[in-house]
Write a protein that binds this DNA or RNA. Sequence first.
DNA 1: CGCGATTTAATTGTATGCAATTGATTAGGA
DNA 2: TCCTAATCAATTGCATACAATTAAATCGCG
Lengths: 151, 151
Amino acid sequence: MARKPALDPLLLGNQICFAVYSTAHAFNRVYKPLLDKLGLTYPQYLVMMVLWERDGVPVKDIGEKLFLDSGTLTPLLKRMEAANLIKRTRSTQDERQVLIALTPQGHALKEKARAVPEGILASSTCSVGELLAMKNELVALRDKLNAALGE
Amino acid sequence: MARKPALDPLLLGNQICFAVYSTAHAFNRVYKPLLDKLGLTYPQYLVMMVLWERDGVPVKDIGEKLFLDSGTLTPLLKRMEAANLIKRTRSTQDERQVLIALTPQGHALKEKARAVPEGILASSTCSVGELLAMKNELVALRDKLNAALGE
DNA sequence: CGCGATTTAATTGTATGCAATTGATTAGGA
DNA sequence: TCCTAATCAATTGCATACAATTAAATCGCG
């Protein structure tokens, strides 16, 4: 007897990974008009959040927080430098490192960015509590997946 | 008095979108070694799942199921055709459409792919029930986000 | 029937992402 | 100290993604 179709693990609709993948894209589309007003892409917005929290950090630290490597970050940061949002300076303590610091414009952008999370919350039609619960579940799953990679 | 830091909506760790984004990347890394054995990338694997479920569909249908447009799909499908997994044929009924059909190799790949979901499940260290619950929550969120875009 | 609006893929340009390699710098052990 | 290993950013090559435009085909209204 055949497996129940609803449980077929090769059906698109049954895969959590596709649910995550397609939700990420949906978020991207919702963020787009909000971030366009700030002149940022979503990954650039992530970098700005790291820097608003702690300024003057090496590329590696940003990469660890965002799970991105230098192959992605180097060109992205160069574009942000060209947009006058950040400044890239090779560290004098350790010349292997490049430190990323906000410009005054980059720092000032935080005020305009405060409207972004509100817009996202409104589009989600969810309560803060629901979103927080899902966020915690996702982070737990992500950490388990990343742990499985290190074995 | 300042807002409690733990509730600051501009902190990376408080954002569900970053949780989704970073979980999607974690999934990608876990899928990579499994899909390498099949000679597929993750988006190509998604296309194969659509075709294993229903063969001979136009590009537009694939795009609607995967939330991808022709700008992404056209070159991706050309690479899959070059790899002898699919065949692209302009429809005789409606010459605007290009129909995507599996080759025998593409059809046969489904058997090798059955091992993939098991590997993912193992890496997640979660029960099927937990994953199913999260999947349903994510799909509901995704659909709400997409609905908000159409307004 | 005729013709403008719509639909469908393809194309162009920009921005991620990641694997693999490179080059410069620093760390650490014999 | 010297020399090898490790670290860090940059680079190269390939594969998504998406906005905007284009071109061909079809639809649908008058």
